[in-house]
C-alpha cells in the first residue's frame, strides 16, 4: 500500500483522519452550504448536494459572503463539520472559518493537494506536525 506525504503550514492544530472530499472550486459559506446537513447548496457548484460531514475537505479556498466563518461555526455546533480541512489559498474567510470550526487545518503545501488527493482517498492529517498522509483508494 502506497502512502503519499505532503507537508504544510499549521492553521489549526490537531490530528484527524478520514475519507477525502475534493473540489477544485472555491466554496461559499453563507449561501453556499447548509450547516444543518453539511451539504454544499450553491446552485452552480460541482459539489452541490454533497455533504462534507466527517470528510477531510480538500479545496482551493473560500469565496463569497463574510458569513463564511459563521456558517462553518454553525456546522461545528450542528455536528456536520468536516474532520479536517486542507486548502491552498489563505484568506481571512477560510482562516477564521478554520479557527472557529476547531478542526485540524493545514495550508501552504509543498505540493498541490488538489492534484494529488482524489475523492475517496484515505487521508490522515497531523496538523501539529504539518503532515498529511494520503492512502490512495485504488492502491
Amino acid at each position: 500500500m502506497t502512502t503519499i506525504t505532503l507537508r504544510g503550514r499549521k492553521v489549526v492544530g490537531g490530528v484527524s483522519e478520514g475519507e477525502a472530499l475534493v473540489t477544485s472550486e472555491t466554496i461559499s459559506g453563507w449561501g453556499g452550504i447548509d450547516p444543518r446537513t453539511g451539504k454544499v447548496v450553491e446552485t452552480h457548484h460541482e459539489l452541490c448536494g454533497v455533504s462534507f460531514k466527517d470528510k477531510i475537505l480538500v479545496f482551493p479556498g473560500a469565496k463569497g459572503s463574510s458569513g463564511w466563518s459563521q456558517y462553518f461555526h454553525l456546522a461545528r455546533l450542528a455536528g456536520t463539520a468536516p474532520k479536517a480541512i486542507l486548502y491552498n489559498r489563505t484568506t481571512t474567510k477560510v482562516a477564521l472559518g478554520a479557527v472557529v470550526m476547531r478542526v485540524p487545518a493545514l495550508t501552504d503545501f509543498d505540493r498541490d493537494p488538489l492534484s494529488i488527493i482524489e475523492n475517496g482517498d484515505w487521508v490522515r492529517v497531523d496538523a501539529d506536525q504539518g503532515i498529511v498522509e494520503i492512502t490512495k483508494k485504488d492502491s
Binding site: 463574510s66 458569513g67 481571512t92 474567510k93 477564521l96 472557529v100
Partner: peptide
Amino acid sequence: VIYCNSVLGARTNTEGRES
C-alpha cells in the same frame, strides 16, 4: 468591504462575525 477598500481607500479584510 469591497466598497470600503476600493471607493473609499480605507483598509479592511473581509472579517467575520467572530473577528
